[in-house]
Design a protein around this nucleic acid. Sequence first.
DNA 1: TATTTATACGGAGGAACCCTCCGTTTATCA
DNA 2: TGATAAACGGAGGGTTCCTCCGTATAAATA
Lengths: 198, 198
Amino acid sequence: MGSDGEKTRREKQTGRKPRADSLRNRDLLLEAATQVFSAGGPQASLEAVARRAGVGIGTLYRHFPTREALFDAVYRHEVDHLAELAGQLAQDTEPVDALRQWLHANVRLVATKKGMIEGLQLAAHGSSDLKAYSFGQLTRSIALLLDRGIAAGALRADITPDDLLRALLGILYSQGPDDWRPAVLRLVDVFVDGLRRR
Amino acid sequence: MGSDGEKTRREKQTGRKPRADSLRNRDLLLEAATQVFSAGGPQASLEAVARRAGVGIGTLYRHFPTREALFDAVYRHEVDHLAELAGQLAQDTEPVDALRQWLHANVRLVATKKGMIEGLQLAAHGSSDLKAYSFGQLTRSIALLLDRGIAAGALRADITPDDLLRALLGILYSQGPDDWRPAVLRLVDVFVDGLRRR
DNA sequence: TATTTATACGGAGGAACCCTCCGTTTATCA
DNA sequence: TGATAAACGGAGGGTTCCTCCGTATAAATA
């Protein structure tokens, strides 16, 4: 969960206000990391992140003791957006279409943040907090949309939100070299068709 | 293609037989690389590969000037196996089932070679020869199976072998942490269902 | 078999990165 | 305005990457 971010943002135990430079540097690092990871993938240089943020490498490690901690902070934000969207679609839109649209939104997001999906995949294999959090958020979002479709009798009932998340991440990750978006969107549609009740 | 491996295996231009130690070391390196990559993924230490093979790091780089070249040699072999299997299934088995079985075979393969899929993904984004070769082999295999299904009227005709390969790689890559195989196999089946003509 | 020579070998070495540790600086609090 | 807890920067030891080159050796030649 957010434990790590929280701890960094707030004190040890004495009741002193966090220093202004600390907060500022944390934000600088986060922004720099977003850019560096987006461009270079999850194994990009942390020293490059520090350089870009204009702080010492020691400062980076104090705020984010591990590479995963940095991912944690960077990607939780994006995931929260998707969860919001799912909530909206679940109110506005016809079930099957809502699911389809939400999946398409994921494709769109990844289109601009190349490194993100790799990060999530890395999280999927590793055991960071990010995994628990983002998978939770995404699974909840999917469950919301999926269950509604099942309840309406429009979607088959033998697929779990977990399954669907796997497929989504997988299909998303399978970006081709050139203009992969149309192909990926088509795949999503095929998959949604496969999900329809027959 | 195999240009790199071939070049290493055979001379510059003079017509001299390749040295025995060279060939031997190449094989040692290949075997070591297969193990190291399978365990540690595509960014595993090349020096570790050399150590495991019992040769100097210089020898490794002479045989495989880049990390990609090593992948190239290691994974082309596996891909060839899958191509063979596709050929067999195309003769033996009912179209939709042949496709399903071939996809399942992919799942099985990946189950034992963790690093491989990451390698293929890496190739998919990069621009190595491995990409051209393995994608060619796999696409051809899929085309074989897919076209047969379409010709028989059993599969929808608006999906290309390319698309299907993307989906396959994607779904394969989406391994969960625990016992992911049943889930992945289910996803494959859903996808194949989506491919059915309706 | 002995000599020549093309070829391969090993590993030193410079650069980048990882992460830790600690002396110095600075923002809060009294 | 001090006092001091907290944050800062970056040196430094370790690892990996990849190149370069003097040494060793297998194939060719006599």
